[in-house]
Design a binder for these strands. Sequence first.
DNA 1: CCTCGAAGTAACTGGTTGGTTACTTATCGC
DNA 2: GCGATAAGTAACCAACCAGTTACTTCGAGG
Lengths: 223, 223
Amino acid sequence: MGIMASVNESSRESSRRGAKRDPDAAKERILQAALAEFSDKGLGGARVDVIARRADVNKRMLYHYFGNKDDLFLAVLEFSYAEIRHAELELNLDDLSPEDGMRRLVTFTYDYFIKAPYFINLLNSENLHQARHLKRSKAILDLHGPVIGMIRDLLRRGVASGVFRADADPIQVFITNASVGYFYFSNIHTLSTIFDRDLMSDTELEARRAHVVDVVMGYLRPA
Amino acid sequence: MGIMASVNESSRESSRRGAKRDPDAAKERILQAALAEFSDKGLGGARVDVIARRADVNKRMLYHYFGNKDDLFLAVLEFSYAEIRHAELELNLDDLSPEDGMRRLVTFTYDYFIKAPYFINLLNSENLHQARHLKRSKAILDLHGPVIGMIRDLLRRGVASGVFRADADPIQVFITNASVGYFYFSNIHTLSTIFDRDLMSDTELEARRAHVVDVVMGYLRPA
DNA sequence: CCTCGAAGTAACTGGTTGGTTACTTATCGC
DNA sequence: GCGATAAGTAACCAACCAGTTACTTCGAGG
């Protein structure tokens, strides 16, 4: 509650002369260290002492800035969600044809999982805990309307020009688009093991990228 | 290693007269309790004491039968993998047309995730730990050839009769089929939260089931 | 009916772990 | 250059946790 209110207001320029004390930088280091540790070990496996050490900060400071382990986890989640949703908004899909727009969205999502593997691990942790952190976050809920709107627009335009099927639901398409990439990466270790292939190799990554585009575009083709 | 060799050989009929001592039943109770606890809390969050209590067994016995926490986790994993792969083999897809066979496989996979939600949680835990248990399991690797073979057969027949596209790869289809259901359920708590809907309601479950069939079949349609 | 191995129990151990306490040091407006 | 406040430190604690030890009880074969 009162935790985020204690954000340092005194040093507006966050990187002044080589200051011995830099609260904003310390907060940032804690957040990044927490992101790495929570991603590597999960919420349950992550150790607060390790986060403090990784951030090169005393544990006391971590508690001072973020409250407790769960609040810190929520802060990491909010940061990660905001990052991907904002990146999506900068895709400018309206400038493209419905088909190109959809291809762009699908490849963006797929490539984002490659670039930000921690995002998958964090979501898996949060779901193991039944989204109990997310449920008390005001910040995140508003982030998702816009991206569904973007998909709805693409679908409408595609239906109007006859290149997309008419019965596609934006939320289903959103979930399916995320699915085909997310599962591949979230389960990459077990899949690589049971199929005895390195699914992280460049050739496999490219093959999957082409496939997920085919899947979404194939589904959207009118009958 | 030598752990599974200590399987009780003395009481072949596993339920004799109300025996005060029944090692096989105890082992089974431990496995089921471990499955529930690992699924609920993840590998890191699971507590050996809780498993012992849930199984109504002394902790010493748990270590006696299963070695240690990691070995127990692997036993649970092997059990879960064997269960789904065996169920798949009983689908008898050869008796159906390629299209009906594929529809059958897709709905089976989807419904399996509803019936066995623990399977998803276990796989997520194993992937968080980079499949390090799976990698030292001989038992599981052989399980996956047959199901890929089933898909390959379906695809061949469908291509031959002109109802499927010719360039579909069996492993990609396997992964995609799993993806569209798995992600929905593994992320059901965060998705339900951000979209403010109960994705576990009957109507939502049915809508998604119809959608995932459409996705796979839509992809496989020839151009 | 006795003996011997397997089944079972309770209490313990050494190392962690999230969170706190008591204290010192730097910063900045005045 | 001073006093108030925020930043920072180290040592600590009570609860916890995977795995072990030392011991008792049961059951079946001889």
